[in-house]
């Protein structure tokens, strides 16, 4: 097992190199000039040239790539062209915001999705099954921006139940440690801020969680149905085990493997795909930041953030693989 983990971690190296080359090359294939986008159309040619020289944009691409990677290996992810701040500082508040939102969305998606899937499978063709599967169909096809705007309109503008956007209300103060606001407010014992940030994360969390929730529900249902038809379940039923025990203890564990795969994948997508949710709910996360950075050709920011997300994606997959072993002890990694 340890060997396996080490092997997988070593695999990170080629992934790292591959992703960095891809990100580097793709960015430079997009027409546009970082110097121009930074100085705007007010800059003189002399200013543009001196900035290009300062950013070493005139060097041949392989030279640029080599010097970038040298810095990355030293732990220096570069400086944002636009803000002059280091990329690490820039994403130190934004990445936790995105991870917090994605985790929250995923928890909602798993809890509701798995439960709905199980009940639908157990009570196949019941009204609940039809309702939840129709709901799931809507869920996967729901445009997030529309759903998000409707939620704000209903819960904030009309009902005044929830704050429309952001991470904290104006006037709520929170001493940040990890930049995960829910965690920070617990660490500092600031319950007001905890409630406030929880109120803020609910709508974007649900909006972002809708699609994974629907996918998880459908996957759980079909996987459960397959397992419920197997002999050992019939045996369990025949020997008179309580139905919930049969379902949760015997069936769910065997049906969970494909669901776990989907969850692992979805988390990766959530991390990279929160752009729309972050935009609608003014969530100061990394998705929106990368999107803006692509538009302004902020090369170092985009390259480094893609690298970080790629590494996280690989790690999440590794964790998923390790979890497989828990759900199916027959799996061997040696």
């Amino acid at each position: 097992m340890i060997n396996y983990i080490i092997r997988r971690l070593l695999l990170l190296i080629p992934v790292f190199i591959g992703v960095s080359i891809l990100a580097f090359a793709l960015l430079r294939l997009i027409p546009g000039d970082p110097a121009k986008s930074m100085l705007g159309n007010k800059a003189t040619e002399a200013q543009l040239q001196s900035l290009r020289a300062e950013l070493k944009l005139n060097d041949p691409l392989p030279v640029q790539y080599a010097s970038y990677m040298k810095d990355v290996i030293k732990g220096d992810l570069g400086k944002s062209i636009k803000s002059h701040d280091s990329v690490i500082k820039e994403i130190s508040t934004r990445l936790p915001a995105t991870i917090e939102l994605s985790l929250f969305a995923l928890i909602i998606a798993i809890v509701i999705g798995v439960l709905a899937g199980i009940i639908s499978a157990a009570k196949r063709s019941s009204w609940f099954d039809h309702l939840s599967m129709t709901g799931a169909l809507f869920g996967v096809s729901m445009p997030i921006f529309w759903l998000g705007l409707m939620m704000i309109w209903l819960f904030s503008v009309t009902l005044h139940w929830l704050p429309p956007s952001g991470r904290l209300s104006v006037g709520t103060h929170l001493q940040t440690i990890t930049n995960f606001y829910l965690v920070d407010s617990i660490l500092t014992g600031n319950w007001f801020a905890f409630k406030d940030s929880l109120a803020h994360i609910l709508m974007p969390g649900f909006a972002l969680g809708t699609i994974p929730m629907a996918i998880i529900a459908r996957m759980t249902r079909s996987s459960m149905l397959e397992v419920l038809n197997q002999d050992f379940i019939r045996t369990a039923n025949a020997k008179g085990l309580a139905k919930y025990l049969v379902i949760f203890k015997h069936a769910l564990k065997n049906a969970f493997l494909p669901v776990l795969t989907v969850i692992g994948f979805q988390f990766g997508f959530l991390l990279g795909g929160a752009v729309l949710t972050e935009t609608i709910f003014s969530w100061p996360g990394v998705g929106r930041y990368v999107y803006q950075s692509i538009l302004s050709r902020d090369y170092p920011v985009v390259q480094s953030t893609i690298l970080i997300i790629a590494v996280m994606f690989v790690l999440i997959n590794l964790i998923t693989d390790i979890l497989y072993k828990y759900f199916d002890p027959r799996i061997r990694y040696d």
Binding site: H160, W161, L162, P163, S169, V170, G171, T172, H173, N190, W191, F192, A193, F194, K195, D196, L198, A199, L202
Partner: peptide, 20 residues
């Protein structure tokens, strides 16, 4: 929690002053 926090937001002052 959402309901509770929202009593502060509901009173339409743009900045709900916090006790914390």
């Amino acid at each position: 929690g959402g309901d509770a926090a929202n009593q502060d937001n509901g009173n339409n002052t743009a900045a709900g002053d916090s006790s914390a």
